[in-house]
């Protein structure tokens, strides 16, 4: 009796808490409405299953609870019913998986004209490197990292000289696809921008990637999403999306490799 009532209350409570909308996605500020779409379809499918299964559970417990003289029916099996249920489940999975895989295939295929920016994580901050006028990032090597060369940039690479460095903020032009090259100097970090729905680990010894197009001008935040030591919860960085002219003005004021980095 009570358990059926409580199960229904839990389902109602879950619906009310979710529908209140107080704790929900931050407004989307990138092109990835496909990610939101795939996630929302998945949440809709599992949310419906959660409600239906719990209500069925509550009903069965209420309806078939022990009473005087009551006796259970001997029902060991029903292959037809089981097949139908497996079919419904498989259908639900296809409905949520198909759009997910389509969106994923786009998520891992960056456009050719994307602006390449390097993100470097270390305990406990993020720094950024932009390509200069040549549009190319110079080579880097973790063995070259020193107090005068914080990115470990290979100064013998001509493409490196005009690279532009930012030690605190990530600025992005609105509407232009961006491909991040993510590195770490020490332990694993994860570069997570909740408003853009994107995340990827920064792994020492590797370069990882993701791409997105910022669509909203404003100030956002990148945070670390992989435990990286006692400063993990403070490892964050402003992400500023601005008009192209503002972005170029800002970029022109940042130090270049040629003027600031010494071997």
């Amino acid at each position: 009796m009570a358990i059926s009532f409580i199960l229904v209350l839990i389902v109602l409570g879950a619906i009310v808490l979710t529908a209140s909308g107080i704790w929900w996605f931050t407004p989307l500020a990138s092109n990835w409405n496909e990610i939101d779409g795939a996630l929302l379809i998945t949440l809709a499918v599992i949310g419906s299953a959660f409600v239906v299964l719990n209500i069925v559970l509550a009903y069965f417990v209420l309806r078939y609870r022990h009473r005087e003289q009551s006796r259970a029916q001997f029902l060991p099996d029903n292959p037809k019913l089981e097949k139908i249920l497996i079919g419904i489940t498989a259908l639900g999975i296809v409905i949520l998986l198909a759009p997910g895989l389509f969106a994923y295939s786009r998520f891992i295929s960056p456009p050719r004209d994307a602006l390449t920016i390097e993100v470097v994580g270390e305990q406990w901050r993020w720094s950024y490197r932009y390509p200069g006028p040549d549009g190319k990032l110079g080579r880097a090597n973790p063995k070259l990292i020193s107090p005068k060369n914080l990115f470990g940039i290979d100064l013998t690479d001509p493409a490196a000289q005009d690279d532009i460095l930012s030690y605190s903020e990530l600025h992005l032009p609105v509407g232009r696809p961006v491909l991040l090259h993510i590195r770490s100097k020490d332990v694993i970090h994860s570069f997570f921008i909740p408003s853009f729905r994107v995340k990827m680990d920064a792994v020492p010894g590797m370069v990882t990637h993701y791409w997105f197009t910022p669509t909203v001008i404003g100030r956002f935040q990148a945070v670390c999403a992989e435990l990286c030591g006692i400063g993990h919860h403070r490892m964050q960085s402003p992400v500023i999306v601005e008009r192209l002219e503002d972005f170029q003005q800002w970029l022109a004021k940042q130090p270049t490799v040629a003027t600031t980095v010494k071997p």
Binding site: E34, I35, A38, L39, T42, L43, V45, I46, I93, L96, L97, G100, L101, A103, Y104, F107, S190, F192, P194, R197, V198, K199, A225, E226
Partner: peptide
């Protein structure tokens, strides 16, 4: 709730 985490692209924002 394991399904969104297994549905690879939906895991990207939810992971960790």
């Amino acid at each position: 709730t394991g399904l969104p985490l297994g549905n690879v692209v939906a895991d990207v924002p939810l992971h960790d």
